[in-house]
């Protein structure tokens, strides 16, 4: 049977190892969180604007084709804003999922 001081030494070594492991794990998580944050920043910026611009372009071309200036452009702008909000919501959901995964 091991004597007490040896047991304590072994235990302290195990605690030290566990702490080191925990530290490296938390470092990994923070790195991944940074990656998630960078992705989110660059994604959100264009996620709302792009459907609006696409919708405005489609509306403009349709208006010129059917000579309905500016009705179709206004209608498509509303749809564009809705699509932009939907994209933003989905991007936020994705970011939330990525954060929870870590």
């Amino acid at each position: 049977m091991k004597n007490l001081p040896e047991d304590i030494q072994e235990l302290s070594e195990r605690i030290k190892k566990f702490k080191q492991q925990k530290q490296s794990e938390s470092a990994k998580t923070s790195k991944s969180s940074a990656r998630v944050a960078i992705e989110a920043i660059f994604r959100m910026a264009t996620e709302f604007v792009s459907p609006v611009i696409i919708a405005l372009c489609i509306g403009y071309v349709a208006d010129r084709y059917w000579a309905t200036k500016p009705i179709l452009m206004l209608v498509s702008a509303i749809f564009g804003c809705a699509a932009g909000m939907l994209n933003l919501y989905r991007a936020a959901q994705q970011t939330d999922k990525d954060i929870n995964k870590e």
């Binding site: 604007v49 932009g84 939907l86 994209n87």
Partner: peptide
Amino acid sequence: PLIIPVETLSLLAKPFSLTIR
């Protein structure tokens, strides 16, 4: 009539947002 145009615009916006960024 509301969802299909919104989803279509959302799909078309994907390459546009990638490009602009």
